[in-house]
Design a protein around this nucleic acid. Structure first.
Lengths: 129, 129
DNA sequence: GATCACATGTGTGTTTTACATGTAGGAAGG
DNA sequence: CCTTCCTACATGTAAAACACACATGTGATC
């Protein structure tokens, strides 16, 4: 099956004719969200997947990319992981934030603060028409 | 010449070893910025290119993409353009915002407001450790 | 034994951004 | 004239980020 995208419709930028999909999302926002959740408590991917929407708003994060991000973070020493086989059900890989990961979260927070200021400036200029 | 990317280095996510490039930018932010500038005054691409950094912060917007966005906006009736040949120097293509474009700007403003709320929530949760 | 919820992943195409390059008009200077 | 620079508009293309689809395995419930 595989048709929904519509080959002939051009479909530029998730456009329904006359409507540009405007979401104004922050790039890679799931990354700091994930780091924040892990700072609060070490946990595994699936649980993060369910907890993330509370931080990101609407976006139910794509699980495929989530797991990829987790492994990328681990490669760079920002989180560590260990397999938990104690509980019933499939094995879980539990992630924990490292000191370096904590620093990255701090960087993200600072960047988000700057981003918020830019949005503030924009909206002020927008409203002060 | 063409080597900088480094085929073997993996070079994931603009990483200098141990440093992830964290910018927290809003996706396609140059688009609403452009619409806002055009609401204030009809003008041409090159001038927008110079004015945009005041809105986007640091990013000197990529001119190639800027011109592409302008034409995409025009295709969808969000701006109109006309060639100005009066002045000396190369001809300028002056863009003007349409009613529809104005509505898109409004949508962007609303989306940016929501985005700001999400950032606020995040930072609050981050600080209230 | 089929179906569902949990849990972790890979494959791949699309969208968005970044970087490089091409064309052309006119001013300034040698 | 020829080069160089600034203005102005544009295309080509690679990399990064994201979205969608599918594969695999455990255990509980029907």
């Amino acid at each position: 099956m595989r048709s929904r995208g519509g080959r002939g419709a051009r479909c530029r930028r998730m456009v329904r004719p006359g409507h540009w999909g405007v979401r104004a999302r922050v790039e890679r926002f799931s990354e700091p969200a994930l780091l924040l959740l892990l700072r609060e408590r070490a946990t595994h991917g699936y649980e993060l997947l369910e907890a993330l929407p509370t931080l990101t708003g609407e976006a139910r994060v794509d699980m495929g990319n989530l797991y990829r991000v987790l492994r990328a973070l681990e490669e760079d020493g920002l989180v560590t992981s260990r397999w938990e086989s104690g509980a019933p059900g499939p094995a879980k890989r539990t992630y924990e934030l490292t000191e370096e990961g904590r620093r990255l979260l701090d960087e993200w927070a600072a960047a988000l603060g700057r981003s918020r200021s830019r949005i503030d400036d924009f909206l002020e200029r927008y409203e002060g028409r």
